[in-house]
Design a protein around this nucleic acid. Sequence first.
DNA 1: ACCTGAACACCGTTCAAGT
DNA 2: ACCTGAACACCGTTCAAGT
Lengths: 230, 230
Amino acid sequence: MPRREPLNREKVLTAALELADEEGLEGLSMRRLAKRLGVEAMSLYNHVSNKTDILDGIAERVFSEVAPSDPTLPWPDQIRTVTLNMYAAFSRHPIVPLALVTDQSNPTSAQALQPLDTLAGALYQAGFDDLRTRQALGAINALLLGSLLLSTGGFTGDPQPHTAEQGVSAYIRQVDPARLPHFSRLLRHTQNGVSPAADFEEALNTLITGLITSAPQQAPDHAPEGRIDE
Amino acid sequence: MPRREPLNREKVLTAALELADEEGLEGLSMRRLAKRLGVEAMSLYNHVSNKTDILDGIAERVFSEVAPSDPTLPWPDQIRTVTLNMYAAFSRHPIVPLALVTDQSNPTSAQALQPLDTLAGALYQAGFDDLRTRQALGAINALLLGSLLLSTGGFTGDPQPHTAEQGVSAYIRQVDPARLPHFSRLLRHTQNGVSPAADFEEALNTLITGLITSAPQQAPDHAPEGRIDE
DNA sequence: ACCTGAACACCGTTCAAGT
DNA sequence: ACCTGAACACCGTTCAAGT
């Protein structure tokens, strides 16, 4: 019987990302990945050094999918577009935020860090000093990753996806309106039409509005920027 | 030899939280927990139904440590204090945000959801409608959990804690200033005196500033707001 | 050069058996 | 009522052996 074309790193990473997209981080095991590639688990170690290496490779790939942003935009728009582009890429591959946050991957290539560099550049352009820039960058990152993680299986006070819709309403009935009046009102009125992407965009706009407010008044550039759209 | 006092759920949860605080989420296994309690792993199942039950119990406990807030404060201060109180409790027990976000725990008691109810109440008080309240609550939650996760082992473009300080500077040298000018400036200027708690407070203030800006202009004041007709 | 089988040290969990 | 030993179906990874 003809041996298949031999494996290589790229094929391993491609299959790993597919598997992770279908089954999540906990579904991505060396043994299952090998099976999908028609090989024994131990063969994978000829092409990647270990599981962390796979997760790093996946993260690098997904970072490279982040659409670049126009550097001539005013700084708030630059922050908005880069961050929304990261959100879009990561929400297609939820394993990445999860692996980042559980320290199972730690990409360090210039490619991967490019979006962070753009964000830092926009913040410096706004006139923030080093401390404030680090804080603002951290805030954007936290909002981004937190939003992604909460929209995929995370805690919102909501029930887990369960099997169907009826899980939700059962849960709502379970929340005691006497002890949690506001939260149960919220649940009752928002079970329809929840859009994580739209919610994130709104959250990001709110944060950017706050950044504009706290930015040094005299913009260091010629550009009078601070538009808030709504 | 005298049998020890028998185990019970409370003892199991206490030991589990201690173990998790020392060793992290991945260090908390049924077998290691049992060993710490001087018992076989299978004994634990007499007192908890499974590992998820343990993680839920831990989350409930930590939520109950969140200091309550003064409901007479203006809504922005109420949001600030509740959220900072959650941050304080969770940063003492990093397993909780991690378990929430990986869907390994899902507390649903009124006790646990109390802080979320307070936040929702403050947002309604600010005059936000149901949609905006949900979005704002999600933003606060995302910023909170994202900040906590990033400050414990997560991705910031920084290296992992490694063994020592020298890991950091080695990493900084590794970032190419030609390709990542702003980000490498940031790393160079902020390796000293990073305080996650202070950074979070700053980030939260920025978000709250944004919320104040986008809140309906006429504050509904003391007016009884939360009535739901159905 | 690439792949494999067996093994090691782990997981969560079930079940029948012990006291 | 509580605890245990053996077992099952998994993990990531190493290593000597095969082609």
